[in-house]
Nucleic acid binder design. Structure first.
Lengths: 337, 337
DNA sequence: AATTAGCAAAAAAACGGTTTCCAAAATAGC
DNA sequence: GCTATTTTGGAAACCGTTTTTTTGCTAATT
């Protein structure tokens, strides 16, 4: 029964008549302590309801058993980040780690966490290369603090990313197979790596299938539903297409809303494809064909790799690219083969 | 320029020829240090690129500047929790705190965080009263560790909740005003406080409007889209209603999917109302009428109150109930008044 | 002139563990 | 039975702060 008085390792030591070094060894499963002594100590800790103070331990051992996970500012529009975090937490918990969550917006305080040695490592969901981010990577490297980028490879730092090129290539194959002839691609923010890769993959896939590049058109958006809507509105004002591939699901949703407003039948008049397999994709009418990035797997791999770096102080050259799966739903015709 | 060698407070002290106590005082804005000495120390810290070690500080001061935030296991189905977390983080960052995120599933490790004094406080999104939760509350209370419940008031512990009763009451008024005559309410999990309150509020509102209680019917679900679909399917097999109020948006979505399948026109043949204003609600066709809980505000108030408890070691009797707003969209007829 | 405040800053004592170093005890080797 | 080696566990140093206690001065009081 843990009373409210604070217990220290010395109390446990006194209770079972040994030194605090011995108690410490038992807690850390040091082999050089006799089995029966260890048992006695375990029993004492149990009986007294002793829990070691993590701050004292962290200070002394130089390990905090905590990692920071940095997500984009607008993660609320991408609920799939929850899967990433869940995965990281699942691994973290099984290995005795805790995670501090930070939005990219608070990158300065991530930097502080690093300077003050409050975390053992960092998992950073990055999409661009800004000065501040590069400065942070540099600092972590100089301090020898392990970190993993998720999204955009930078310099020789360890990273994990989704195969956006491959995913978009699959979309291209699919669209060509379904005999779509005139395709509009709606881009995301200019420098955004995912959007860039998805367009690149689309071009590759189309070219492989012998699609006439002259029938691929581009519009610009910023990932928001509204921007998808406006891109469609603007484009279709004086152009046509029989399929739209948006760089993400929300813009695809914008296109769908535009079609609904204009009475354009999906998929009869227009095929729509998104990217991300956002939560709502399967519930739209028609359900959205999209590409699903393996967020959970990414989280698992990221955290496992990070722990390996932290605990073995090895610096494996982690450069992982995970495949994304095409999810065919009703927003494109699928009759022909 | 911060080099990679580790700097300690002693290095700073040595550099500006004073003792480490003085440096510590300067960092903590202790007034009993001459202004010019303070300036010299500040300058030295700046020049050397010194950052205090948080673990040492935490051990010595007994404060970790970290709080745990506990969310439901299935928060991925409720992306609005992201707003809650964002709010908590916004306040946390401005006050120099960090947040450790935990799913309810890992309540044991939350308990460990508490025992090991790794957090200064806890924000707990609770919905039921389980043994393990009560045990945790008890432990925190005994240890004098501040915490706030979000959702369900338990004993005399501080809590913040959404006015589910009021929100559902507004739904009732609205439905009666729109002259709906036969209403089906789809419940969530049996002991779930939100679902219970929403049903209670519905009953109160209907009764206030003179609605015949005999025309209110009940079905059971578990908050999932599928359960909403099945509840509708089962109920409508041999019953009728002109409006369905589901305890949450996902079940309302299930009902909508059922209608879509059966060709039931919404809102012409059936009005549908949800609760939560889930991300997808406004994008459904028709967009879903629902009730929006002020998650961001809740997060702000929770974190501000928690910090107050932590820093002033005061124990204000926090019992906050925030109003939820009815969001009228097209899934119910709104023509009549 | 002697005593007393008052204050800035140094010195020392926590904070609660881990780890190094070393001695005692136990075991092995011959 | 005696030395060499391995276990086992204690004492003390250390991690880098904050906080308490002391000290040394200067200015004020009597």
């Amino acid at each position: 029964m843990g009373t409210s008085v604070k217990l220290t390792i010395d109390d446990v030591a006194k209770y079972c008549g040994c030194s605090r070094a011995t108690v410490s060894r038992v807690m850390n499963h040091d082999k050089r302590v006799r089995a029966e002594t260890a048992e006695a100590v375990e029993a004492a800790m149990e009986k007294l309801g002793y829990h070691p103070n993590s701050m004292a331990r962290a200070l002394s051992a130089g390990k905090t058993k905590t990692v920071a996970v940095v997500v984009p500012e607008k993660w609320q529009e991408q609920p799939y980040y929850i899967k990433l975090i869940d995965a990281v937490e699942d691994v973290a918990d099984s290995r005795g780690y805790n995670i501090i969550l930070k939005r990219r917006k608070y990158i300065d305080s991530v930097s502080e966490l690093v300077s003050r040695k409050q975390v053992d490592g960092v998992i950073f969901r990055n999409m661009e290369e800004t000065e501040r981010e590069l400065a942070l990577y540099g600092k972590m490297e100089r301090m020898g603090l392990p970190f993993i980028l998720i999204g955009k490879p930078v310099a020789a730092y360890p990273f994990i990313k989704v195969d956006n090129v491959g995913g978009a290539r699959a979309v291209a194959s699919f669209l060509v197979e379904q005999e779509y002839k005139k395709i509009l691609f709606i881009k995301g923010p200019e420098l955004h790596i995912d959007s860039i890769d998805r367009l690149a993959g689309l071009k590759i896939g189309l070219s492989e299938k012998g699609f006439n590049p002259g029938n691929l058109f581009l519009a610009s958006g910023d990932y928001s539903t509204e921007s998808g809507y406006h891109a469609a509105k603007e484009y279709f004002a004086d152009n046509s297409a029989d399929a739209v591939f948006a760089a993400n699901d929300r813009m695809a949703l914008g296109v769908l809303l535009y079609c609904r407003e204009k009475g354009i039948q999906v998929p009869e008049d227009l095929g729509i494809v998104g990217f991300d397999d956002n939560f709502f994709a399967e519930y739209l009418s028609p359900p959205l064909t999209t590409v699903k990035p393996p967020m959970y797997e990414i989280g698992i791999i990221a955290m496992e790799s990070l722990i390996r770096m932290i605990e073995n102080s090895e610096r494996p050259n982690i450069r992982v690219i995970l495949p994304a799966e095409l999810i065919v739903r009703k927003s494109c015709r699928t009759s022909m083969r």
